[in-house]
Amino acid sequence: MIEATLLTKVFHDKKRGEIRGADGVSFRVEPGRIYGLLGANGAGKTTTLRMLATLLKPTSGTAIVAGYDVVREPDKVRASVGFLAASTALYGRLTAREMITYFGRLNGLDEPSLRARVRLLADELDMYDFLDRRCEKLSTGMKQKTSIARTLVHDPQVMIFDEPTVGLDVMTARSIVRFVRECRARGKTVIYSTHVMSEAEKLCDVIGIIHEGALKAEGTVAQLKARTGETDLEECFVKLACPGEAN
């Protein structure tokens, strides 16, 4: 479960002055649901998700993630969250197994349960061919599997995906989408950011449209379409995100 209340992040830039990366963002995600954060580049998706994963500290507002407050108990939040972004890379000089094991240890798993967990993940993700190869030598698809295993090693209740399919080919992107659905099927709380309309439409139970740091609209795809009277999600998005510019 994720409950964000008025999450706000203000950055200070020497040239541009004060920038509101996120401005009073509030939403709620139930377990077994996928919440899609839909927005253009620079809309505030990454900032919001980084605050949920406690990588950034909110300037004001807070969020309860898996029962813990992101401001007061960031360590506990991180222990209950799996964070996967296009920008979270693997250690090239470690093997896939070492990578998963390292994050398992950092999550406080003991050695026997860690070994069992690695075996389970390697089975599920079909990783045995490359488990003991260095990450720098892996193909993009293999790297994605390793990253997924890394986020799942501590079996988190909440999964945060920040544009995980950016730059991936169709097959690899599809396997990520399949994996996100599987997380939902297992009852995890999932939040997923993207700027690809079709992806959001296919995957998300609820979509939040974010623009210039603020959440402009929220609802299921059907609700959003009904509200704007459009049949195409892209048209809906443009109307809701920036009403003045729609034509």
Partner: peptide, 14 residues
Amino acid sequence: ERGTMETLLCCPAS
């Protein structure tokens, strides 16, 4: 530069 810092910061270690 390699993007592993963000990965590391996701773990519960302080």
